[in-house]
Computed example of a mutant assay.
Amino acid sequence: MAYDINLANRIRERLFELPNIEEKAMMGGLTFMYNDKMCIGIIKNELMCRIDPAFHETAVEKPGCRTMDFTNRPMIGYVLIEQDAIKIQEEFDYWINLCLDFNKKAKSSKKQKSK
């Protein structure tokens, strides 16, 4: 499954000055890890945002936002944003900032040890 390279470049440009950013192919798209924690991603042509679960219900009321539901299982704290909802830089920055703010208190996935 391909992801939108233009959206990937917008994210790269926005995160350029941050330390500890790592890109990983994940979920058929691209994920940006920040401080070893999943932060932002792209699935097809949508922005995937990891946000504070306490803000989830408010977020999905915003235009172009919906709950991420991989394998028909809603994932609270993960939302997908349609491209039309992030055309304007202020809208794009709003979602990126939500992800970065939550990243400070998000728990890191434990790394698997090599055998």
Rank of each mutant, 00 (worst) to 15 (best):
A2Q: 14
Y3F: 15
D4Q: 04
I5M: 09
I5L: 12
N6G: 08
N6E: 12
L7T: 11
A8V: 04
A8Q: 10
I11K: 07
I11S: 06
R12C: 03
E13D: 11
E13T: 13
N20H: 13
N20V: 06
I21S: 03
E23I: 09
K24W: 05
K24M: 14
A25Q: 08
A25F: 13
A25M: 09
A25I: 13
M26F: 08
M26P: 04
G28T: 09
G28H: 06
L30W: 01
F32N: 02
F32R: 01
M33Q: 07
Y34G: 04
Y34W: 04
N35C: 11
N35H: 14
K37Q: 01
C39P: 03
C39H: 01
C39Q: 01
I40E: 02
I40F: 01
G41V: 06
G41I: 11
G41T: 08
I42H: 00
I43Y: 13
K44N: 10
K44Y: 04
N45I: 02
E46Y: 03
L47F: 06
M48Y: 00
C49R: 00
C49P: 00
I51L: 11
F55W: 06
H56M: 11
E57R: 12
T58Y: 06
T58D: 10
A59S: 12
A59Y: 09
V60H: 04
P63V: 08
P63H: 12
C65I: 15
C65F: 14
T67Y: 03
D69S: 12
F70K: 05
T71D: 12
T71E: 14
T71V: 15
N72W: 02
R73S: 12
I76V: 14
G77N: 01
G77V: 01
G77E: 00
V79Y: 11
L80D: 07
L80C: 09
I81Q: 04
E82S: 12
E82L: 10
D84M: 07
A85C: 00
I88C: 11
I88D: 15
I88S: 12
Q89K: 14
E90V: 14
E90F: 10
E90R: 13
F92A: 04
F92L: 05
F92N: 07
F92V: 06
Y94M: 02
W95F: 15
W95K: 01
W95C: 03
W95V: 09
N97D: 14
L98V: 11
C99T: 09
L100V: 04
L100T: 02
D101S: 07
F102L: 04
N103E: 07
K105P: 06
A106M: 07
A106G: 05
S108W: 01
S109I: 10
Q112C: 09
K113R: 11
S114T: 15
K115A: 10
K115F: 10
